[in-house]
């Protein structure tokens, strides 16, 4: 029977919503045990959040100053040390999980299933390949244990915060390899909702023309209580920072409402939004590929339409 270990993602202050979605993904494994492990320093609040996730059996808390901020080369051997007895080890398919879990797989000498979008059974999964242009069903042979997988967070709702799992402290067991050091980070101002988990997202593309013009997107987003996103072209042009990029190499998101403004709709971008509830496209080119996937399309000049839309709300 399945015994699952989920590696929690957090930023040192709160548990990432990606963790709750990974737990939801694990529900499809018909597991007897779903444990969540949290690595870091001063983890009380984060561990309590993890303990509330529906279906979680036990939260294992590994506190050590050397485990924060998270570095894959430091965490991977800790995961291996805890892996004994588990049939599955899961992590969210975020930059955190995608950095860490393949290193764990390397240490364990096994392959990993990337970006699980559907759990067929405990050993069979569906995942996107070719930027989402094909879906492959992958089966992990019975001889391979544990099964390692990253979970595509856009494919699963967050597990409800209705549980009350026990919380257990564990000690760090592995050595710091000492060859990798955290230097620093720079990130978004933290204004508005988080792009990865927002229910409404307004994104701008290259047609915005400048970072000043991109304020139109920010302003509309604010009015809608939405997160701001961007196409790769807009990020490459320097209008907005990289963490706003939506698409194959940016964030894969599933908001209820996605408004794409001045985005032509390259397949790499569409990959990032195909799970959105309703897609609205505003573009002056009626032949833009974005209209092929949009539920509601409006053809016209965005510089005229955006202020009009904001006024109408």
């Amino acid at each position: 029977m399945a015994k699952v270990l989920i590696i929690a993602e957090h930023d040192g202050r709160s548990l990432s919503p990606a963790t709750a979605k990974t737990v939801q993904g694990a529900h499809g494994l018909a597991a007897d045990v779903i444990d969540v492990v949290v690595f870091g320093d001063a983890l009380d609040a984060i561990a309590q959040d993890a303990a509330k996730l529906a279906g979680v059996t036990c939260v294992r808390v590994v506190e050590d100053a050397s485990l924060a901020p998270a570095l894959a080369s430091r965490l991977a051997p800790e995961v291996v040390a805890l892996s004994e007895g588990y049939t599955h080890i899961l992590a969210p398919s975020t930059t955190f999980g995608r950095d860490l879990l393949p290193r764990v797989a390397g240490l364990l000498g096994c392959n990993q299933v990337s970006d699980v979008m559907e759990v067929v059974d405990a050993r069979t999964f569906k995942r996107p390949i070719y930027a989402g242009n094909a879906i492959v069903t992958v089966r992990v042979p019975d001889a391979i244990s544990p099964v390692l997988a990253t979970v595509r967070t856009a494919s699963f709702a967050a597990a409800a915060a209705s549980g009350s799992a026990k919380v257990e402290a564990a000690s760090a067991q592995a050595q710091d390899p000492g060859h990798t050091e955290y230097v620093g980070a720079e990130g978004s101002s933290g204004e508005g909702p988080d792009l990865s988990s927002a229910t409404v997202v307004v994104s701008g593309g290259r047609a915005m023309g400048s970072s000043e013009n991109f304020e139109l997107i920010g302003s509309l987003a604010k009015k809608l209580g939405a997160a701001v996103g961007a196409s790769r072209a807009a990020v490459d042009a320097g209008y907005v920072p990289n963490e706003l990029q939506v698409g194959q190499t940016g964030k894969i998101i599933a908001p209820d409402l996605y408004i794409a403004v001045g985005i032509s709709g390259a397949i790499q971008h569409l990959t990032g939004i195909k799970d959105a509830g309703t897609i609205v496209a505003i573009n002056k080119d009626p032949d833009a590929p974005i209209f092929e996937v949009a539920d509601l399309g409006l053809v016209g000049d965005l510089f005229q339409l955006l202020p009009e839309l904001e006024d109408a709300l």
Binding site: N111, P128, T137, V299
Partner: peptide, 17 residues
């Protein structure tokens, strides 16, 4: 791993203008 089957992604229905 065994590649069991390949399928096209679910298509989004056509929208309206």
């Amino acid at each position: 791993f065994e590649m069991v089957a390949f399928e096209p992604p679910p298509q989004r229905g056509g929208g309206k203008t």
